[in-house]
């Protein structure tokens, strides 16, 4: 075998050692092909289409226009409104789902005699299709027949006509998203909680720390990696929010609850404007990348 190499050169090892190069290429090829086919190619196509004027309704062949689509986006008032709604949904449902998920994970981590009913009930919202959740909750928030208004009436409060007001529509959408997404957060956080050894809590018990102190000084710091992972997932899916507002409010009233993803869908599928739709999708892609990079930087800075 080859003599030991300094670790800095290890990464190029397979390129420089002729005896292993063939094997390395053979092992990597299927994966590279697969990733290329399902990830790189579609994304590249998206970027390319975003540089064309390509509206299927015009009957004209695609025409290269450079960054014109992006300039149009910058001046599009609807884009800024749906971006604002998406930002609100992200800003409300990401922390909301994190807190809900954390509460659920802490509950599921309690020493129940039978763990499976708790875990199962944790999973049900996650297993439900998004569109289905949207339809159920649209019914819950119905002004005449919905359980929410029924409860409000029973407690002697004014019922709310949820889907007539931009504010209450947004509130209903956010509540539904939080309900739907906190179970996945809970799942990730529960896995994180289970990696914390019980003896740490016992040591803290003996050391004199109460429950709240143990939560702050042991659970939270040791859960941080899981929290960051959960936040990354939730933020990306929040930026891409589509199904729930689409089925609940269809973006209404007006476009008060329309999201960026719904706007992309409208332009591409309803208006068949592939160029503009692709350019919007590129913007969403870049936003997701940006948020992920920010989180990763956050872990690296503190870890």
């Amino acid at each position: 075998m080859a003599t030991p190499r300094p670790s800095s050169r290890l990464r190029l090892y397979w390129l420089t050692d002729p005896s292993d190069r063939g094997l390395a290429v053979m092992l990597l090829t299927p994966l590279v092909l697969l990733v290329g086919l399902v990830v790189v190619y579609p994304v590249a196509r998206l970027f390319r289409t975003s540089l064309y004027n390509h509206a299927l309704t015009s009957g004209m062949p695609p025409e290269f226009v450079g960054f014109e689509n992006f300039l149009l986006i910058a001046e599009d008032p609807v884009f800024w409104r749906v971006l604002g709604s998406t930002a609100i949904i992200t800003a409300v449902t990401v922390p909301g789902a994190l807190l809900m998920g954390l509460a659920m994970a802490l509950m599921a981590n309690l020493p129940f005699r039978r763990k499976w009913p708790v875990r199962l009930s944790l999973l049900i919202p996650w297993a439900l299709p998004l569109a289905f959740a949207g339809l159920i909750f649209a019914w819950f928030f119905h002004s005449e027949y919905g359980v929410v208004n029924d409860l409000l009436r029973r407690f002697g409060l004014q019922p709310v006509i949820w889907f007539n007001s931009p504010f209450w529509s947004m509130a209903a959408v956010c509540l539904t998203i939080i309900w739907k997404t906190s179970s996945f957060m809970a799942l990730i956080l529960l896995a994180g909680l289970q990696t914390i050894p019980r003896s740490l809590y016992e040591a803290a018990d003996v050391d004199g720390a109460g429950r709240w102190r143990q939560f702050r000084e042991i659970t939270l710091p040791l859960l941080r990696p899981a929290i960051v992972v959960a936040l990354i997932f939730r933020t990306i899916t929040a930026l891409q929010t589509f199904d729930i507002p689409y089925t609940m409010t269809q973006g209404g009233p007006g476009d008060a609850t329309a999201t960026l993803a719904m706007y992309i869908h409208e332009n591409t599928i309803s208006f068949l404007d592939l160029g503009y739709g692709s350019a919007l999708a590129v913007v969403m892609f870049l936003l997701s990348m940006l948020m992920t990079a920010a989180y990763l930087r956050m872990i690296r800075a503190r870890g």
Binding site: P197, S199, L200, E202, A203, A204, E217, I218
Partner: peptide, 9 residues
């Protein structure tokens, strides 16, 4: 108490 796995934070 000194724990078997030390239980250091």
């Amino acid at each position: 108490m000194v724990f078997q796995d030390y239980a250091l934070y």
